[in-house]
Design a protein around this nucleic acid. Sequence first.
DNA 1: CTGTTAGCGCTTTCAG
DNA 2: CTGAAAGCGCTAACAG
Lengths: 325, 325
Amino acid sequence: MANIKDIAKLANVSVSTVSRVLNNHSYVSEEKRKVIMEAIDRLDYSRNMNAVQLLKGKTNVIAVMLPFINHPYFTRLVEGISVEALKVNYQLMLCQTNYNTEAEMKVLEMLKMKQIDGMIICSKHIDLNQIEAYTRYGPIVACQDVGQSRVSSVFSDHYKSFQCGIRYLINKGHRYIGLCLARNQGDNSQMRRKAYTDELASIGEPIRDEWIFHQTYRIEDGVEVLRNLLELNSRPTAMMVTSDQAAAGIIMEARKNNIRVPEDLAIIGFDNQPIAEVFDLTTIENQLPEMGAIAFQIGYDQITRKKEQPENRELEYRLIERATV
Amino acid sequence: MANIKDIAKLANVSVSTVSRVLNNHSYVSEEKRKVIMEAIDRLDYSRNMNAVQLLKGKTNVIAVMLPFINHPYFTRLVEGISVEALKVNYQLMLCQTNYNTEAEMKVLEMLKMKQIDGMIICSKHIDLNQIEAYTRYGPIVACQDVGQSRVSSVFSDHYKSFQCGIRYLINKGHRYIGLCLARNQGDNSQMRRKAYTDELASIGEPIRDEWIFHQTYRIEDGVEVLRNLLELNSRPTAMMVTSDQAAAGIIMEARKNNIRVPEDLAIIGFDNQPIAEVFDLTTIENQLPEMGAIAFQIGYDQITRKKEQPENRELEYRLIERATV
DNA sequence: CTGTTAGCGCTTTCAG
DNA sequence: CTGAAAGCGCTAACAG
């Protein structure tokens, strides 16, 4: 591959002049510019970005850390990030971690090794303070509440939104309410569980472990949940479900088993994914694409304007009333 | 940020010795190694990967070009790629193009500029020969049939698989068959349309434009399709649908309108996504994750073993009989 | 086993 | 307006 020297030689100019036309820096005589362009064409030359990046100490790449890409929650977040990144000519490094500690640390290390200019955490397993230690190498923004921290964040309050959903069920007369969570120990899941236990306590209902399900992400998981429900002697009359996908699965399987929704079983989903509309599912809107977009902007601002301060932005949630409660 | 020179100085050794311990090259006395490690610790040093990449002419990054991430088709493909990439310590650059020519060319340019070692094309808009011109800069593998070409590929035969699906419908007694396609002019779509027209011709049925739908990717699109169908005077008795999502939408909306599936309307989906199982949808299995995995392996082989030859691998498809035909 | 040194390919002062 | 030269941070061939 030809390099800038070859071009300079062929065009009979210095490398700096070549660099100038490459970058549209200052003025270069039309004549030389032409000769240089021809040389570039002749030798099929392109800049080697690795050299540029080394010199500039900047890569125009931002990493997106997520456990798996195969879920609409993350997919919509990434969509939001991607749209903003495109506007300012940034590339996305997709880092799938499976919530594996080593894989997550590797992303952090990439920041330290200057492979990326910043990173967005969609969901994580490692501790916040492990992450904080890396903010000195570049902006890190999390799509979840991180409290007071050197890590920036965009998030919606999962305690309040779950509280809102459960109160809605209670107001509709439900006392026997089940819960579907994603991870057991995830930060968001913990908030959600707390909202659940607090609200049930407020109406004097006990927590029944057999009404709480974990790892419910996909339609299939919802199907499974309903099957489990069928086995129980006493069943909840309503379910608060962390994912619209899982909620849809519950509805599908409920129909098969002649369980009427919402008469026999009321359901609230989460995220207001497109599938929620199709299923006429009452759900909680979370502004996922906006969250991704804002996450990128916060990171980008810190990269460019050197806005040192971490930024924390809370997004609104909204209960969307449809036909499943 | 400290660099390798700082470490060398602090540890009272040469940079090459530092480099040796960094890379576990040849032997370094235990004593020096220790001092060096301490210096690294003290100065919180990490290699600058940009320098390494410049020197080696290799980035350990592979780009994934796709129109949008927000669809299970691509998501599962990426999942397959990602799993393989992880195994050999490669990173994924996610390049969302929206089928926009400029965006697609930018990915190709990244290859030329050595920002990436290779690329996988999940779906594209630009012409094959534009892409071929870039194979000299690194391996390019497409997840679709590219015929004889310098571009590698993994694909399943969309002509044959659609033919298979439509014949299945015909054998079940259907003559009035509609079609849902993704893009109008996409390479795969053209094959699918041809299979459709050929098969209808074989039973002497005319092509009815109002039975052919485009841009049907998501559940909502399927809902829309059925609504359109309802407006028609004469309706098909069966639909061959490019996406399981769209098929699910059709089924949902059919139920709402008391159209029985399969009695009034038979449906075949495509891809055998998890949703197909939940909807008990007859569909065509395409091995998407495998396709992604193999695409990566082919690219990786060319990067490492310098296997110059482009490789073309055809995957099997399989009709999965369930309850919607 | 260790150090010296020549680059990888580019940008950017600093002179002219 | 243009060129020379000094690096960005690292690796590896070569010499000891």
